[in-house]
Design a protein around this nucleic acid. Structure first.
Length: 425
RNA sequence: GGAGAGAUGGCUGAGAGGCCGAAAGCGAUCGCCUGCUAAGCGAUUGUACGCCCUAAAAGGUGUACCGGGGGUUCGAAUCCCCCUCUCUCCGCCA
């Protein structure tokens, strides 16, 4: 959510930035509602001032056994008018709020203006494509041949876009979760949290999933709960409606969670394999920082995510999303795209974003400077570190062997107890 | 699921229709005092929104806020209704 005063005073600039995003917003409606709200507020507050003064007078007259009936009658009228205006005010504020909640964040000045993923600048490339003396296969073939991924039974149990992991497949997923958590906890010094996997409407609104993206979420029937689409929701909302101390910042959390996404509107896209699932595992990093250091923290966060791929020794590149591609709540986002030889392409495996105060304002997450002063909104950041299912994909495809086996990356062997997954007889 | 108790500022905790943005204490900030530290003394000490002033702050002023929403009343932290959450007991349960 943008600052209402900022929006009022910089309407033209915001309009321009939204056009860069490819977003039209209802600025005129916002401005007229905003003006209307202030008109009503002035009238109703003047009336309240009168009511407060006269009510006091009534109390004093009654105490002195005086007659207050004329005043009481008049205040009855004033109160009726206040009630009328209050209703109008509430309606106006609700309408205003509705508009405010669906305006995206303003992209940071370093974000390039673009129209599609073609325009995302590549900022780094790490490693190189592995060479195969056989045609590399896609992970779904590798996984099925090894009998570690069962797409048919996953679909039987739940439906399309669900997968059953089996044997070393299940263990690989679990090893990756632990490897990533251990790295971020012990070497990058994040605090581990394990959160609820469902969240309420307030939390979903706080991080920006609601109200605009309700269709992307799974909602639990007959309740106010939604399955989280990312741990970003539950972790960021840890501090919703809190005032933090400057000396405690930055707060850095890491959380494992399953993620649930309806994938509405992506019918027919990535239907094979693990790439696009209704449920997938992710290790997520979340930071709460002071405004002046949030972009430094974004670089560190991105480096922390990249470290996972480097330790796994898998080729990837880092891109900076252009204005048309960054998410609704984000001011700047780096995507990590991992190389998938079986599909001869790069695929997103992590997304690291600085939301500046956009989420903090929605969720009312503030901090107080050491030594006092006014409270300010923190900056929030998050990044996948990494999407676990897609990491399994990357390992299967990058570490596949001619005989159909898959070598386990060095760093995972302590977790896996084996150095290779071989086909079952 | 049943029965009961509660929710007040950064924290603890009073207040039970008007004198309440709210006692007291703690904490914090500033100042004084003290050859260190501790103690002591004095002052200040919420948030949001509007308006005035301002380049912007500061400042002034008004309104709202005592878990959330409705109601009663000239007037509600206080009375009534609904909801949420917390705690205790019973039942059920991993």
């Amino acid at each position: 959510m943008l600052d209402i005063k900022y929006l009022r005073q910089n309407a033209d600039f915001v309009r321009k930035k939204m056009e860069e995003r490819g977003q039209g917003i209802e600025l005129e409606k916002f401005l007229s509602l905003d003006a209307k709200r202030r008109d009503i507020l002035q009238e109703v507050e003047t009336l309240r001032m009168e009511r407060n003064a006269v009510s006091k007078e009534i109390g004093e007259r009654k105490k002195r056994q005086g007659d207050a009936s004329v005043l009481i009658v008049r205040m009855g009228e004033v109160s009726a008018r206040i009630k009328e205006l209050d209703e109008l005010l509430k309606k106006t504020e609700d309408d205003l709020h509705d508009i405010l909640l669906i305006i995206p964040n303003i992209p940071h000045e370093s974000v390039v203006c673009g129209k599609s993923s073609e325009d995302n600048p590549v900022v780094r490339i790490w490693g190189g494509e592995p060479q195969f003396d056989f045609p590399p296969r896609p992970h779904w073939e590798i996984g099925e041949n090894l009998n570690i991924l069962d797409f048919v039974r996953g679909a039987k149990i739940a439906g399309a876009r669900f997968t059953l992991y089996r044997g070393m497949g299940a263990m690989l997923e679990r090893a990756l979760i632990n490897f990533m958590l251990d790295l971020h906890i012990f070497e990058h010094h994040y605090t581990e949290v394990l959160t609820p996997f469902m969240a309420n409407k307030e939390s979903m609104t706080g991080t920006g999933q609601l109200p605009k993206f309700a269709d992307d979420l799974f909602k639990i029937e007959k309740s106010d709960y939604y399955l989280i689409p990312t741990a970003e929701v539950s972790v960021t909302n840890i501090h919703r409606e809190e005032i933090l101390n400057e000396e405690d910042l930055p707060l850095c959390y890491v959380a494992y969670s399953p993620c649930f996404r309806s994938e509405a509107g992506s019918y027919g896209k990535d239907t094979r394999g693990l790439i696009r699932q209704h449920q997938f595992n992710k290790v997520e990093m979340v930071k709460f920082t002071v405004p002046e250091s949030s972009y430094d923290e974004l670089e560190k966060l991105t480096a922390n995510a990249e470290e996972v791929l480097q330790r796994l020794n898998i080729h990837y590149r880092t891109v900076s999303l252009c204005t048309a591609e960054i998410g609704f709540s984000s001011a700047k986002t780096y995507d990590l795209e991992v190389w998938l030889p079986g599909q001869d392409t790069y695929r997103e495996i992590s997304s690291c974003s600085n939301f500046e105060d956009f989420q903090a304002r929605r969720a009312s997450i503030r901090f107080r400077r050491t030594g006092g002063g006014k409270t300010k909104f923190v900056h929030t950041l998050n990044g996948s570190g990494l999407a676990v299912g897609r990491t399994v994909v990357a390992i299967l495809e990058n570490y596949q062997q001619a005989d159909g086996s898959v070598v386990i990356p060095e760093v995972l062997r302590p977790y896996m107890k084996v150095d290779r997954i071989v086909p079952e007889r």
